[in-house]
């Protein structure tokens, strides 16, 4: 087993960029996800999530920079493809094939194939193995696709919006299977999703993309520990803006609210400090750059 260097990270991007024609789909993306992490990839549609995952899987070539996954450069080679599992958006499967057909295909195409656990799990989920997958529900198809990806025994698993189309129960089932697989071994996962509440449960690392840019890439605990909402009467915010990163600011004539990434202790006790959930932090980041800071004047108008 080729275990990637723990220090370097199981998935590393260094200045990774992809341009389609004149438009950059992803620009100067750098991060390192340590081995064994489950990394959530967040961003608005078109932010570059799919582009990033495709480059990591080797399906697409970067225009700039480089990536390293499980100690190798993603490429069209058996040694690399054997190390990864990839689940594309919309869960592509051969609709007229049965689940067994898919498992047999996997067994024929992959040297390190082990689907015993997968078959058992699919049976436990009461998914008919001999039925055409086109007749299965979305949740069942997602489970089949995940079983295929896991049976490859990959070191790194990449999932592009795997639960987007699923109902809450199917989503929970999918994420349970995924988490169990992570608990089992040395698997590193990167998955994109819009469902931040799900990511907050299953992930321990997050990457935020917006407009082809990487805004944040860190362990979830650190992200949660360093982001705060500060509110207080309106006054000079220069000191806060100097010491910390203000993601979003809302001002009325009397009050200021700031979504802040702290870079150290907050010395001013006059700010009312609140913890932020991942969803609120994401919104603060994704709102970045979309508009100038808002100054709602409603209360003033009412005066």
């Amino acid at each position: 087993m080729t275990s990637p260097d723990r220090a370097a990270g199981a998935i590393v991007a260094d200045g990774l960029g992809k341009r389609y024609g004149a438009k950059w789909a992803l620009r100067d993306c750098s991060f390192a996800i340590p081995q064994g992490r489950v990394c959530g990839l967040v961003g608005a549609n078109g932010a570059g999530k799919t582009t990033l995952l495709r480059m990591l899987s080797g399906l697409s070539r970067p225009t700039t920079g480089r990536a390293e996954v499980a100690g190798q450069t993603p490429r069209d080679a058996v040694e690399y493809l054997g190390e990864i599992g990839y689940l594309a958006q919309d869960v592509p499967l051969y609709r007229r094939w049965s689940v067994t057909d898919h498992l047999r295909m996997g067994a024929h195409l992959n040297p390190r194939w082990e689907d015993t656990a997968g078959r058992e799990r699919l049976r436990a989920l009461r998914i008919p193995l001999e039925q055409k997958v086109g007749t299965l529900s979305g949740g069942q198809r997602a489970q089949v696709a995940l079983a295929l990806a896991l049976a490859k025994q990959p070191h790194v698993l990449m999932l592009d919006e795997p639960v987007a189309a699923l109902d809450p129960l199917a989503r929970r089932g999918f994420l349970s299977t995924l988490s169990e697989a992570v608990a089992d071994g040395e698997l590193t996962v990167i998955l994109s999703s819009h469902l931040v509440a799900d990511l907050e449960r299953v992930c321990d690392h997050v990457i935020v993309l917006s407009d082809a840019q990487t805004l944040l890439a860190d362990d979830l605990d650190d992200v949660l520990a360093t982001h705060r909402l500060l509110t207080g009467p309106r006054r000079d915010t220069a000191a806060i803006e100097r010491d910390h990163t203000v993601l979003r600011i809302e001002k009325t004539h009397r009050q200021v609210s700031m979504w802040v990434q702290l870079h150290g202790p907050l010395h001013d006790p006059n700010w009312h400090v609140e913890e932020l959930g991942l969803e609120e932090i994401m919104l603060a980041y994704l709102g970045l750059g979309s508009a100038a800071p808002v100054e709602p004047e409603l209360s003033e108008a009412a005066r």
Partner: peptide, 16 residues
């Protein structure tokens, strides 16, 4: 069209 190309191309077989 069906996207199955990306399923096959990420098995341990080269696109070539």
């Amino acid at each position: 069209e069906m996207g199955t190309a990306s399923l096959v191309w990420t098995q341990s077989i080269t696109r070539r």
